[in-house]
């Protein structure tokens, strides 16, 4: 054991001959496809279960029986649900996500630009938040029990305990309305300069960062402290390993699994879970599109969004699991 500690990160290469990582990943991707299929069935069933159908939602208060019957026929809603599902699935397998039932536009068109917007917002937020959160989590673990640790912990919790819509509204009131430094709407026009881009994204990114920062920072600290309190690390400490080295060389590799999972969970929020930010800043992203689609029971559009969110989530957790495997090769024997 002492040997292993001394060898640090090197030890993992000497253990056994686990199944090749590529095979594991390939299997997970295959399972993920099945999972996407399952999710699409559930989302379809869920949307079907919701009271009201797309014809009623389109007609709203104007839904007279004749108008409903006419629209339902036009939208093929009279066909049995399973047939409509298979029809959608068949189209998707041929690379056709279908057309919106509400406005007849192609789902790919409707989703396309918004997906890019959503990914851009997610990317900016990730770039800002993840390194900072890991840094805070790791330093808090290194200096655990100190005033720094306590203050950082308290601030971290404070950030996540502010309701998002409150922070967003307050930020707009201060920076857009009162000071007029930043725009209240984050409508980025094509051909915007870097500075305009920066101004437009400042508030949404700040709001989202606050929402996801705490989970990453706190779970990083918790996972590290948990490992640090285990006896083998204590032994290393007894051998006189410096605290920073202790954390970075000994604890961090072993805490990577939970940390990667916490980061994956946080980031998966950035596509589908940002309705409030998209609403408050009028940012045309996917989360709001999905909410609209659910309100109008626009099945192909709901499905497209759900598939995108699900794929993003599965990719993130796959990466997290691979990181966990790399960090702890023994797991591959399972």
């Amino acid at each position: 054991m002492a040997e292993a500690i001394a060898a640090g990160g090197e030890r993992r290469r000497r253990i056994g001959a686990p199944p090749p990582l590529a095979a594991l990943i390939a299997r997970r991707i295959a399972i993920s496809l099945l999972l996407l299929l399952a999710v699409s069935v559930l989302v379809f069933a869920g949307t079907e279960m919701l009271p009201g159908d797309v014809a009623q939602m389109i007609l709203g208060q104007g839904a007279t029986p004749q108008a409903l019957a006419g629209l339902r026929a036009a939208l093929h809603l009279n066909e049995p649900a399973w047939l409509r599902y298979l029809h959608w699935l068949w189209g998707l397998l041929h690379g056709n996500a279908g057309h919106s039932l509400v406005n007849g536009m192609s789902v790919a068109t409707l989703v396309g630009r918004r997906l890019i917007n959503s990914l851009r917002l997610a990317l900016f937020t990730t770039v800002v938040t993840v390194p900072l959160a890991l840094l805070v989590g790791i330093t808090a673990a290194i200096w655990r029990g100190t005033t720094y640790d306590r203050v950082v912990n308290m601030l971290t919790i404070a950030t996540v305990s502010v309701p998002e819509f409150l922070f967003a509204t307050l930020a707009v009131l201060i920076f857009a309305v009162r000071l007029r430094w930043l725009p209240a709407l984050s409508l980025v026009m094509r051909g915007a300069s870097f500075l305009e881009l920066l101004r437009a994204y400042a508030l949404p990114v700040a709001t989202l960062s606050l929402a996801i920062f705490a989970q990453m920072a706190r779970m990083t600290r918790a996972a590290l402290v948990n490992i640090l309190s285990s006896s083998y690390v204590e032994m290393a400490a007894l051998k006189g390993v410096r605290p920073i080295r202790l954390v970075l060389r000994h604890a961090l590799p072993n805490a990577l699994g939970p940390v990667a999972n916490a980061v994956a969970l946080s980031l998966s929020f950035l596509l589908g879970g940002v309705v409030i930010v998209e609403t408050v800043f009028s940012y045309p992203g996917l989360a709001k599109l999905m909410v609209d689609a659910v309100s109008t029971r626009d099945m192909p559009l709901v499905q497209a969004c759900a598939m995108i969110f699900c794929t993003a989530y599965l990719l993130l957790v796959l990466v997290a699991d691979v990181i966990a495997l790399l960090a702890n090769p023994r797991l591959r024997h399972r």
């Binding site: 509204t169 707009v172 007029r180 609403t279 800043f281 009028s282």
Partner: peptide, 11 residues
């Protein structure tokens, strides 16, 4: 609120 703030901020 977003609509009102957008007006007040000149957007």
């Amino acid at each position: 609120a977003a609509r009102v703030n957008a007006l007040l901020s000149g957007d």
